[in-house]
Design a binder for these strands. Structure first.
Lengths: 196, 196
DNA sequence: GCCAAGAAACCGACCGGGCGGTATGTTTTG
DNA sequence: CAAAACATACCGCCCGGTCGGTTTCTTGGC
């Protein structure tokens, strides 16, 4: 706003609004149901306006995923910087990452993007490359096969929890969704070389 | 066929053909893209014919999932019956289950159904109930928290492998997809009380 | 054994609507 | 005044679902 006098309209603000609204929408009904018209309505622009910022539907979705990966990167970097122990440093950050700042909307958005990834090579490539790059970067501290099992367990816990939170509210304490914080603690503890 | 003389036409055969074709179709492009017309064409019936056997699209998808769960049940029962060790018996069967008889089509079908489960309470309930029922049934042998981590790791491995096999063919031996058999061995070995 | 009758199985045309995408016009901005 | 930033109207397509008709089978009375 303060710098807006030297810019065009606020195209980048509109672009952000589109992305944010699209994120909200796919968090509710999944990414495969996302329609451009719905995004346009939610963002207060016309359908043509959306297509002005994103050449097609696929580009919009890829942009959303890229956003998510960038945010994840920041989170991981911050978590790793605050971790004094070398061994398993990245794995611990990765495990903690699945809490997504406990923001339900961000969690569902991530779920929605995973939904399209399961059958779309483009998003799949983006996602896979992100992880393999980081694994290669932190090979010195996180290449232990036991750590891989822990990361996979984190993925599995995430998947199970996400499957469960579509269910009608049930507060069964045995339900994995409700045990997730404890499970994160358990997995984190398993990453240390000589666990206490 | 032998008993067919006392039955109507072959409605149950048509029903099976519809289910099989639908399974093939969702294995290719995902369950969210499934159209009734495509199913009808593939099964050699009309659209009305499909709607005669299934009241709506959702019912068809639920029937496919129920089919998958029934098959999984048989597999698990067989695997458990052949396992002499009590502790972790169900968990071992569960881990082996994710190979899906190494049938790529069945694997993709399962992936497609998971895709809808992420945002649909009906299928989510079906899936969750299946697992919780079996966990309750085998609580005596498989309630160890360490075994839960293993099952979750199996889920995570499955998810990762599924994400990767949309990728254009790459035979990178580091890719989890190509290490899945070894990983299954590793997880299986971890289920025994005093691992060798 | 036969035949009417009714139910089940299935076909095919149709409907309203929403979809992704385009093409063109209008406003805003540098 | 040119180009960017939008709005508006429109196109063709396909979707899930409905409905009435036609064929095929089962049943039951005689």
């Amino acid at each position: 706003m303060s710098l807006a006098h030297t810019r065009r309209k606020q195209p980048e603000l509109v672009r952000r609004a589109i992305l944010d609204c699209a994120n909200r929408l796919i968090a509710e009904r999944g990414a495969t149901d996302l329609s451009i018209q719905a995004v346009a309505d939610a963002a207060g622009v016309s359908k043509g306006g959306v297509f002005h910022h994103f050449p097609n539907r696929q580009a919009l979705i890829l942009a959303m995923l890229q956003d998510l990966l960038d945010q994840s990167d920041e989170r991981v970097e911050a978590l790793m910087a605050a971790d004094p122990v070398a061994h398993g440093r990245f794995t611990r950050a990765y495990v903690k990452l699945l809490r997504m700042d406990d923001d339900p909307e961000q969690i569902r958005t991530c779920t929605a993007l995973m939904q399209v990834t399961l059958f779309d090579p483009d998003t799949g490539t983006l996602w896979t490359n992100w992880l393999t790059d980081r694994l290669a970067r932190h090979a010195a501290t996180d290449s232990d096969p036991a750590l891989e099992v822990i990361r996979l367990a984190a993925d599995g816990a995430w998947l199970a929890a996400r499957t469960q939170d579509t269910l009608p509210d049930c507060d069964d304490p045995d339900l994995l969704r409700n045990r997730l914080p404890a499970l994160i603690e358990r997995l984190t503890a398993m990453t240390y070389p000589t666990p206490g």
